[in-house]
């Protein structure tokens, strides 16, 4: 499988990653190689293999429904570039 330069640009956009135009060709080659590996794995007969949803064996542990977190807004908001009236401010995005 071979990805085009446009495919790479689209993937970068979906992942919100800025990439250097000079690197597109090498990304296309690397990503195509990964997809080829997928194709190769797809050729294996996995009929008798249960899909794995996690590499570890244990089951998820659950917690009781009790409030354990206190309000630390002021502390968290020192990390943010802009805040106002308790809100985090971000560039306007209207979907």
């Amino acid at each position: 499988m071979s990805l085009s330069a446009d495919d790479v640009k689209k993937i970068a956009h979906l992942a919100r990653i800025g990439i250097d135009a000079n690197d597109i060709a090498s990304y296309a080659k690397d990503l195509s190689g990964m997809l080829d590996l997928m194709v190769q794995m797809g050729e294996l007969n996995t009929d008798a293999v249960a899909p794995m949803s996690h590499p570890l064996d244990p089951w998820q542990r659950l917690r009781t429904d009790e409030i354990t977190e206190v309000n630390q807004r002021d502390k968290f908001q020192t990390l943010a570039a802009h805040t106002e009236a308790g809100l985090y401010l971000v560039p306007k995005v209207i979907d």
């Binding site: 809100l87 401010l89 306007k92 209207i94």
Partner: peptide
């Protein structure tokens, strides 16, 4: 998301 006027920005709760 609150899109009222926060100096052209959006407020997130």
């Amino acid at each position: 998301s609150l899109h009222e006027d926060f100096h052209g920005l959006s407020g997130i709760d």
